[in-house]
Design a protein around this nucleic acid. Structure first.
Lengths: 218, 218
DNA sequence: GTCTATACCTTGATAGAC
DNA sequence: GTCTATCAAGGTATAGAC
């Protein structure tokens, strides 16, 4: 792996672990065993690194989360989708931990982020409407819009919400399950008679997973 | 007003305007026309200031948001409540803009925050159950718990969500109305036949307010 | 591409006079 | 209670050698 990619990879890891604010370019360089000068050869500054990371994140979202073509197992498809989505959010969670701050310092990135969010909103809305077309949910257009916002907001801020309520900063697999429960919860009230039972089952399933204590390794 | 209170007041204003990270103790002192040394006479450091601000916030929430004793106008009561609540959140929004970061730097504050959130959760849950008792909503215990979490999360992260999607950082009255629409939206699917019409009316009302452009001052 | 060295600046914080 | 003066520490960023 070349130095540029190593810097990106290490930056993501350190930002997630200690928070973007606490991690300086010196820390990143030291952790990689390279000089600060070398780091600055590859990136203009810290914002430049963050912009690259954001590109990775948004590209990943664009390529992996194409509109669903729903079959008869629409709800299972949805949960698989959610599983990957929360996983992605966790891998870049430092970004949402510090969203306001990061965007405030870099208006170029902020503009990109706003554009990205607009596209994302359209996609989320498309998923909601696809679920309606598949008769999984019953919802009017206005509520569909509101629901799409709530979904986006829930997924975005789920990790900071979790982190803020425990002393140790680590997120675990159960937290992801718990997030999925929350998202299913948002859909649930709109479920048709056809899907009601199924979504209750899914919610119970993920609730169980969320409540489970991890088996000890020893 | 004494210097200590002035420091608190100015800090809140500056934190909200420019973000907690960007505002240093020197900036606060300069803005007040006092010396940095004077500021440090009153507060141990920046974290100390933030801790005091958090006390104000949590105290305000504790004294002003007592459990509702619902009468026949339960939903109107709820919206009045939400109005004040969002207003409070806006007045201290810098805190949630930077929540993860602020808590990560101050484990004492984090502990207080966690305690506070636990109490808050109980209160929110009590409101949900009171609405159920008043036959405004119909919800089982498990969903009531999930709903309480969603409510808390929505209110907490509403301002950062709004701020992240526009270039200029200022929040306006319409944003609060829009937040209320989101919260009503969360209740809506559980509404009983009795309250369904009423909540639709309220949602439409706040939607209209949210969509209105502010009359120009001239 | 990478290192060493370093210069500049901001921040946090204190000592001591008034 | 407030000011002036000051400093150490740490972070950003660059120059120039290899």
């Amino acid at each position: 792996m070349n130095t540029k990619d190593k810097i990106i990879r290490t930056s993501i890891a350190m930002f997630n672990l200690n928070g973007e604010r606490a991690v300086t370019t010196n820390h990143i360089a030291a952790s990689l065993g390279i000089s600060p000068g070398n780091l600055y050869y590859h990136f203009k500054n810290k914002e430049d690194i963050i912009r690259h990371i954001f590109s990775l994140y948004s590209e990943h979202l664009n390529t992996h989360f194409k509109p669903l073509s729903l079959n008869e197992n629409a709800l299972e498809q949805l949960t698989t989708y959610l599983d990957s989505l929360f996983d992605l959010m966790w891998r870049y969670h430092f970004f949402y931990d510090n969203l306001t701050d990061i965007l405030a310092r870099d208006s170029e990135l902020k503009q990109d982020y706003i554009e990205f969010q607009k596209k994302l909103f359209t996609q989320v809305q498309a998923v909601v409407l696809a679920l309606r077309d598949a008769s999984v949910i019953d919802i009017n257009d206005s509520d569909a819009k509101e629901l799409a916002h709530m979904l986006k907001m829930t997924v975005s801020f789920w990790t900071p919400y979790v982190k803020a309520r425990r002393m140790t900063g680590v997120l675990e697999q159960q937290d992801i399950y718990n997030g999925i429960v929350k998202v299913l919860m948002l859909f649930k009230p709109y479920c048709t008679a056809l899907s009601k039972e199924k979504i209750n089952g899914l919610q119970a399933h993920y609730q169980t997973l969320a409540d489970e204590t991890l088996p000890s390794i020893a």
